[in-house]
Nucleic acid binder design. Structure first.
Ligand SMILES: NC(=O)c1ccc[n+]([C@@H]2O[C@H](COP(=O)([O-])OP(=O)(O)OC[C@H]3O[C@@H](n4cnc5c(N)ncnc54)[C@H](O)[C@@H]3O)[C@@H](O)[C@H]2O)c1
Ligand SMILES: NC(=O)c1ccc[n+]([C@@H]2O[C@H](COP(=O)([O-])OP(=O)(O)OC[C@H]3O[C@@H](n4cnc5c(N)ncnc54)[C@H](O)[C@@H]3O)[C@@H](O)[C@H]2O)c1
Lengths: 286, 286
DNA sequence: CAATCTTTGTGCACGCGTTCACAAAGACAT
DNA sequence: ATGTCTTTGTGAACGCGTGCACAAAGATTG
């Protein structure tokens, strides 16, 4: 069972599935809350509800860590908090550098949830000379020049990128060259990094677009109640090919109240706009 | 295509897999960049590289939308931009309300990527009377009292929660009651909503913890080579679930371990496990 | 028009993740 | 001890997502 090793290039770290790793912080949060209320034990059912997952899934997740529960009773809260913390590497302090102290970077620096989980802001870095010296969240912002030094001095291995998209890759390269091996990227760009470096991204825009997709689907669903079941075939594909007429806001089914209010007054012409939002061509590496 | 599209997989929204939907914004971003450079067509290979995905995956993703490519040539950039935009519902304006205009909420309000994709900030809401009236990102912050009215007036269906965790659920309930059916939650809490309401969450803390997990694993990888992960004191571990010890913080050792990139290709010894299992100090700040 | 070259669209196999369902483990009562 | 009751830990089935590999479609050239 524990196997999994052999000569596999598997990304399966130590037998713990990635999906499980992603949920451990969730469990930890719920357990911490219980701990603060001095609750001694929890059943998988209770904890699962608190964490918003299926209880079987939770039990299986925990089974990867070991048998820490007691049948007929449940899990010891304190003990489990410790085990998960250890597994996640939170029993040690992780110095972090944040690069790009703008709106977002400053908010992140001020974020309390940072320190409360063992992450310590080792330094705030910004390329703007104007920013250097300013104090944000009690820390003095440093100019990019000192980036490498800070990383080395504090043995930092986690970096957060909150610069404009155009600067993300260059900054990333510098971070990696300086020894960073884990990056949390907030810029809307695909970062390319060498093997051995982990990158996770947070993209607000993408999240909203996904919501919009489902929202649109909900709106359309209401219009054709009956046809719900059957395959609506390729109905829509029939649309005329050729280039899209930019401006036109195609309203869909509407039906129920929730129709996008784009109509309100002007269209503020979306589209045809400066892609200024910061998308940068991903160049064309190898 | 044409293969007998059998029964509807029920969960599949209109036949488009969730994983695909999540990647569409990625493709769209890459395509927009190409469009701005007036590139007429792209091959799946090029686009896939730009979006950071496998080309086969990209082609399969597009196949769910229809056959928009031309064999031997590739995809028409403009046309594809339009098709994906339409599929995601971005051909219409989506008014959004942001609740909780603190550090994060303000940063979000100032975020340009918002508007550039068809999302329009309809209103900024905060419970703090002090905030009401202040102008953030060119918009006047409104007090929570007007929440329902704003949602109705603007026919808002997407809400962003950036309040402290404690307020998230109550705020969520109000939003839902007022007609919101899609929520983007930044507060570190599990929100419970009725069926029909979509919730997506962005949790910085969780992302960092996942990175820490992998970071820890990388560090451990260098140390030992092939040790059984058998818990030595089996009886000890399972038997007494005594409370975890608390001790001092351990400094990250190694110091040299950085950049294992060189050995990337191969089977670098895996396994891992924090070398010292028996006595890892635990520090779990509240 | 035929030959060749390029690139799409997808059938297929595989592995991961999720969930069900239940035997076994232990707590607790008698 | 014995029986009952609760809850864990996990075997097994299933569905989704991924990526390979290739036939077919169309462009392009001669
Ligand atoms: N603000 C948000 O809510 C939000 C949400 C999602 C994503 N983002 C993304 O996060 C990034 C930052 O957003 P923001 O609103 O804070 O932008 P911002 O313009 O307010 O801040 C960017 C900061 O980065 C600094 N910077 C620029 N180039 C740099 C470099 N090479 N090295 C170091 N620092 C550099 C700038 O001086 C500036 O202080 C952007 O990529 C944006 O798309 C922001
Ligand atoms: N700052 C970050 O980078 C960051 C990162 C990840 C997650 N978060 C989370 O995002 C949330 C906001 O973080 P922040 O740093 O902006 O906090 P903050 O304290 O700066 O801002 C919170 C704002 O919400 C308002 N508020 C409180 N209760 C409200 C209610 N019931 N209705 C409307 N408004 C209300 C407050 O008046 C305040 O303006 C928190 O849950 C935090 O954990 C923040």
């Amino acid at each position: 069972m524990a196997t999994g090793r052999t000569h596999r290039p598997a990304n399966r770290s130590r037998g713990i599935p990635e999906a499980t790793v992603a949920r451990l912080p969730l469990y930890l949060r719920a357990l911490t809350a219980l701990s603060e209320r001095s609750v001694p034990t929890v059943s998988s059912e209770e904890l699962a509800t608190a964490a918003g997952v299926n209880s079987a899934k939770l039990r299986k997740d925990f089974s990867y860590l070991g048998s820490y529960g007691t049948r007929g009773v449940g899990y010891d809260v304190e003990y489990l908090v410790y085990q998960i913390s250890r597994e996640l590497g939170l029993t040690q302090d992780w110095p972090v550098v944040i690069v790009g102290i703008g709106n977002l970077g400053a908010a992140l620096a001020n974020y309390g949830g940072f320190a409360s989980r063992g992450f310590r802001v080792a330094s705030l870095i910004d390329a703007d000379p104007e920013m250097a010296g300013k104090v944000v969240a009690g820390i003095e912002v440093q100019h990019s020049d000192g980036l490498e030094q800070v990383i080395e001095d504090n043995d930092v291995s986690i970096g957060v990128i909150a610069t404009p998209a155009a600067s993300a890759q260059p900054v990333c390269d510098r971070l990696v060259a300086a020894g960073i091996t884990s990056i949390l990227n907030f810029a809307p760009t695909v970062l390319s990094v060498p093997d051995g470096v982990d990158v996770r991204k947070v993209d607000l825009s993408i999240e909203l677009q996904i919501l919009a997709f489902h929202e649109q689907r909900k709106a359309g669903e209401l219009s054709d109640e009956d046809a719900e079941e059957l395959p609506q075939g390729a109905g829509e594909v029939t649309a005329s090919p050729v280039a899209p007429p930019a401006a036109s806001v195609t309203k869909r089914g509407s039906g129920s109240g929730k129709s996008p209010a784009g109509a309100s007054g002007g269209t503020s012409g979306r589209n045809g706009e400066p892609g200024s939002d910061g998308d940068v061509p991903a160049v064309m590496p190898a």
